[in-house]
Design a protein around this nucleic acid. Sequence first.
DNA 1: TCATATAGGGATAAATTATTCCCCTATTGC
DNA 2: GCAATAGGGGAATAATTTATCCCTATATGA
Lengths: 125, 125
Amino acid sequence: MYERKIIPTLNCGLDIIGEVLFGKWKIRLLWFINEGHKRPSELQRKIPDASRRVLNIQLNELERHELVTRKIYPVVPPKVEYNLTELGKTLIPVLAALGQWGDANEERLRDVILKQLVSSDLYDT
Amino acid sequence: MYERKIIPTLNCGLDIIGEVLFGKWKIRLLWFINEGHKRPSELQRKIPDASRRVLNIQLNELERHELVTRKIYPVVPPKVEYNLTELGKTLIPVLAALGQWGDANEERLRDVILKQLVSSDLYDT
DNA sequence: TCATATAGGGATAAATTATTCCCCTATTGC
DNA sequence: GCAATAGGGGAATAATTTATCCCTATATGA
């Protein structure tokens, strides 16, 4: 496992939440698990842009941060289920607020975000 | 400027907010600007762990995303002031909710976060 | 004259994150 | 036997983000 060289400062709540929620897919993982998509394969289907590998890694981190639990069923083929912990559940309203803000400003922001991404050459068509 | 090779999907509000709030210091920048620390040098003093360079870069991004405005006073030595836009202001309650969640769970999370950061070798002392 | 404050950008190195590819387990169905 | 399924991890590499270092400009004060 990769070992960090720069230790983050964790002075305030905002620092903490940064550590816990950063990672490209974590918010979505929590969200979908909360919606009932608990198995890794389901989550992969819900988030097809992410590779299987990263989802695993980020799920592991969420587990270490005690936001989700991982239950392994001793069956073949294997079955695994992720669930939100009590702590994880308390995060859902906050994520909902984030999502609502994003939804409310979706069109406007999609434009400015893409404008800075796409190279200007590709504009005139 | 660095040009992205992988274009993110922006399907839902959570994707959008991910793009807008990612960046190690962005949440804190917005927060401190809202608190009235508007000049770059003030912000640098409030966030000493970040290099001057990244703060500039992330402030530029916040400006492009229309969350802050940048006002330049034609004086010497130069004076610049950042302010939240109307859109930026609507984000503050959401950030407050994030911060509160982080504050409420600070001790517990600081432990699990650091536990996974510090290499196990350094543990037994 | 020289250091300081103020704002910012370029180039490059380092750190971090994410992607790709490949391998392993064991059972069921063909 | 072979493919598919379901979950997972190692290694190497690509992509992205941060950090470092250095340079510009001007007025002020020592």
